[in-house]
Each structure stands twice: as C-alpha cells, then as structure tokens.
Design a protein around this nucleic acid. Structure first.
Lengths: 215, 215
DNA sequence: CCCTATATTAATTAAATGATCAATTAATAT
DNA sequence: ATATTAATTGATCATTTAATTAATATAGGG
C-alpha cells in the first residue's frame, strides 16, 4: 500500500501493472466502504500511483467501478453457466444439484481475499442506487438467472415457472446475505455461534433451498 | 421540497416541525442514495430549512443518520417482540406462526412510502461499512433475534440451537432481499413475473422458511 | 415586563473531491 | 534516425462538503 515506485515524470522503463493495481486497490476499498465513500485519492494511494492514472486508464471514477464489478462478475456468471452445462451433459441430476451449481462458484470466491472483497461489492450492488447499479447488475445477472429457472422448471413440472421464479429469488436472498459478511452474523449472537465454512454452508443452503423449493 | 417558509433570521412565530421534516427528508434521501452519497445540502433543501439546522438539532451528519435509523428501527423490533408475546399468551402456535410474527411488522412498513424508504435503509445497513453500521445494527437486532431463536428452539427440540441460528439467518436473508426492492426483481426477468404483494408474499416466505427449518 | 432559553438565518471556513492539463520520458513503428 | 504513441508525474481547477459562528428574533417562566 502506497509504496513509492519512481520519482520523475515520463514513461517508466520496462512494463508495469499499474492498471491492474488500480483495479485491485479499488476492489478492496469499494468493498470496505462502498462507492461514494471511497475517494480516488484513497485508491491511487493504495495502488501507489498518482490520481491522474485513474482518468488515464478508466476515464472516470464511475467507469473504474464498472470495470471492477465486471471483471469478476462476468467470470462468476460464466462459471455458473458452465457448471449447469456440465450437469446437463452428465444427466441424472436433480433440484439439489442445480442449486449447488449456482452456489459453488460464489463460495469459491470466498476462499481468496480478493474474492471476498468482490463478494462484498456484489452484495452491496443490490442496495446501491439504481443509477449506479441497475444496468450493470442486469447485464451480469439476467441470462444466468433465466437459464437456471428454466433448468429448475424442467425438473419441477408440477410448478408454474412463475412460482419457481419467486422461490429462486428467495434462494438468491439467502446466499447473498450469508456471503455479504459471515463475520457480522457471528457478532449478532456475540460469537456464540459460527456459521459453517464453505462446503458445509453450501450443503446447508442447498438442503434449505431444496426443501423450500420442492415443498 | 424546498418550499420557502420565512425570510429573516430569528425564532419564527408559532411552533414548527423542522426537526421531523429533516428526519423525513433524510430518510427518503438516505434510502435513495445511501449515507455517503447524500449531502446535508440535499437534505436541508428537501426539508426547506438551512443547513445549520441539522447541526442544531442533531449535531452532525452521522448523528442524524443514527436518529433516522433508530426512529423506525426500534419501533420495528418492538412490534416483533410484541407479536411473539401475543403468540405465547395465546398458546398453541407452531414454527410457521413464529416466522410470520417476525415478518409481518416489516411487511407492514412496506405499505407506506416512508416505510419503504426505511426498509431500503435497513437493507443497506447490512452492507454498509462496519464503522457506520455495526453498533447500530446490533443495538436494534440483537435482542429480537435471540428471542426468536429461543422461541423456535422450544418448538424444535430435536434441533441444536446452533442449527436453528444458522437457518434463521437464512430466513433473514430471504426477507431482506425481497424487501430491499421488489421493483428490481421484476426488472431482472423483464417484467415477465411479478412478486406477490404483502400477505401473499409473507405466506410464501413463511412456507418456504418453515420447510427449510423443519426439514 | 424582563430575562433567558430556544429556534432560526446568512455568511463563512477549511478540507476534500473528481477531473484536467502541460510537461516529460520511454517504447514502438516507419 | 525520426516521428508517433503510450505511460507517467505534478500541479492546478472549480465544486462540493460538513461544520461553525455571529446575529437575530420569538417563546415562556419569574
């Protein structure tokens, strides 16, 4: 954070990773404080570059945010679609498998520091002002959600698709809340309880959600 | 918004509601844009008062936010505890009734404009930086959550309290997500589906959550 | 009726913010 | 070799921000 790299102006020798370092620093700081409360000064200081670099690489603060969100967001959705495709190829899967396929890529992000930062940003996207979040969110979410609902509909022919949509919305609520910060949940009960980690938590949500969906 | 009330300095004649009008305007604007992105200038303009009034009545921007949150937050938690007490007095209730008692006061808020503003603030509290949100959230949430978990534990003697805690956390995730903005969910599927309103949505969540809890 | 507490405005302050620009240096293409 | 493009610094800009203060006017208790 903030290490000094060079002194004078001008293009430095060799190749640099300043663009990625800005993205990484922004990801971390946006995760901690949200978009509006994070200044370009904070971000560029953490990345060890001057403020002008943000405008050089990204054009503006808001465009930087969009890049941060899309970078891991698109990968996450691709992973979800890929897992569902695998299920379809293998065949012989049920509702639990579909729910699990949706959850696993998100919980995998939770195993790295940067992934956890991204997950906090993602959770916050659902409460940020529409002007900031709506278009981005839809760009990333629309296709995967529809694809998963269609897959569930095929497995649950007795249920209207509309009902599946409603219940899948509830599943999203569960996993977003759990992933938005496990630390917090322990605080509520004064650390008397801990949430299970990863695999166990995934299976808990899968079981909970499957029971709610198939009821 | 921004109507002019008076011209000169000095205490105005009669009684005023400027304090409440500041709270109302702040509630609406904090709901729309979040804490950091809402300026005191915005709030005081909307309330039709000068900026200095915020510091006069509340001391600072952050203290104003806390008052906004606590005003309806404490009432909400009181209502939850009261409904649970009613159940206990009447006797003969089950898991569904407990879940419903937790949800009903929140969904009642959704029936008024100001209530919907508050619910957006509440949903955002779960992703705001800990420095802003942690203490407030705990102050309001701690007792009711524990009380409800204890009530559920009495009804589900086969389950460890720890398990009930985990599953109740999932229930909170569901309802927060649903209430954080129903409009958004319709957008995701290009308005092909609508979420049920109030009573129906409450019963949907009650059924979903009960199935997940009792499984 | 006077005095003090209360409520309000207008002006001001210092700090922070996002953005822009000219200057500078290295890499790359011709 | 030379010209152009890419990457970077440091300084500066106009705004916006939250907060403070002095002045002013009314309310209400003795």
């Amino acid at each position: 954070m903030g290490r000094i790299k060079r002194q004078g102006a001008g293009r430095p020798g060799g190749s640099t990773q300043n663009r990625d370092e800005i993205l990484d620093a922004a990801e971390r700081l946006f995760a901690d404080a949200g978009y509006a409360a994070t200044s370009l000064k904070d971000i560029t200081a953490a990345a060890g570059v001057t403020q002008a670099m943000v405008n050089y690489y990204f054009g503006s603060k808001i465009k930087l945010f969009q890049q941060v969100y899309l970078r891991k967001g698109e990968a996450l959705q691709q992973a979800r679609l890929a897992l569902l495709d695998e299920l379809k190829e293998r065949g012989g899967f049920d509702v639990s498998d579909v729910i699990r396929a949706y959850l696993v890529p998100a919980f995998q992000l939770q195993t790295t520091v940067a992934g956890r930062h991204y997950l906090r940003i993602q959770a916050r996207m659902h409460t940020e002002p529409d002007a900031l979040a709506y278009k981005l969110r839809q760009e990333v979410y629309d296709v995967p959600v529809r694809t998963y609902i269609a897959a569930l509909a095929a497995l649950l022919p007795d249920l209207e698709e509309r009902v599946i949509f409603i219940r899948f919305t509830e599943v999203i609520g569960i996993y977003l809340y759990i992933l938005s910060g496990a630390h917090r949940i322990e605080q509520i009960s004064e650390a008397r309880y801990m949430l299970p980690v990863n695999e166990d938590m995934i299976e808990e949500i899968v079981a909970f959600a499957t029971a709610g969906l198939k009821r």
